[in-house]
Amino acid sequence: MEKPVISIRHLVKKFPAGKGEFTALKGIDLEFNTGEFAGLIGPSGSGKTTLLNIIGSLDAPSTGEALVLGNSIGQLSAKEAARLRKHSLGFIFQSYNLLAVHTVYENVEFPLLLLDYSASERKKMVLEALEWVGLTNKIDSRPPKLSGGECQRVAIARAMVKKPSLVLADEPTANLDADNSHHILKTMETLNRELKTTFLFATHDEKVIGYLRRKIFLKDGRVDKDEWVK
């Protein structure tokens, strides 16, 4: 049987708050397999971004275990966590987080620079990724000159260019209108089907929820419902 991409057991995350502590995640148990197109759904403060950050090795659990691609996030050193993100994870953020002074090409090329690909390989891969998102005509533009939808498509190309095993998208459509949101979601759905990449969203946007094949509802740091769409 294939090992799950993500395996979470009794995960608790606490943050210091004033003199006490605030518990954002209160014992989460979840598993995700290769090729899933799943979402963590819930209102603000439900813990979805915290969970996404832990899965993305940007944060560590207080107790419990989060295994991502066989790596126990709580046990990873900073270097090992960076290596996991560099090789196997892609991130898509609500506010795109593109490097403003870099061109579209340079933004998409960035993860490949860290992976030491040759210049010719990088060029081939960047152009392929930009083709997926339909932005080959904007390679020399800089993010401030692009629309919100175009920026998010660049962010998707950047997340996908190295063909990671897992893409984590935090509210990817929050700053986009309906047309752009659907366009982006369709792009991600296509990439998920064609490349078998696992997509995990943190969202409360109905447009995103409509595309998900698995919906995990979080409420006050707990899994409220875990639904599969047939």
Binding site: G56, A82, R85, N97
Partner: peptide, 16 residues
Amino acid sequence: QKEIGTYIALGYTRGQ
């Protein structure tokens, strides 16, 4: 700050 966070998310260590 966001750029620094992005570098880290994309695989840079804080030292890098």
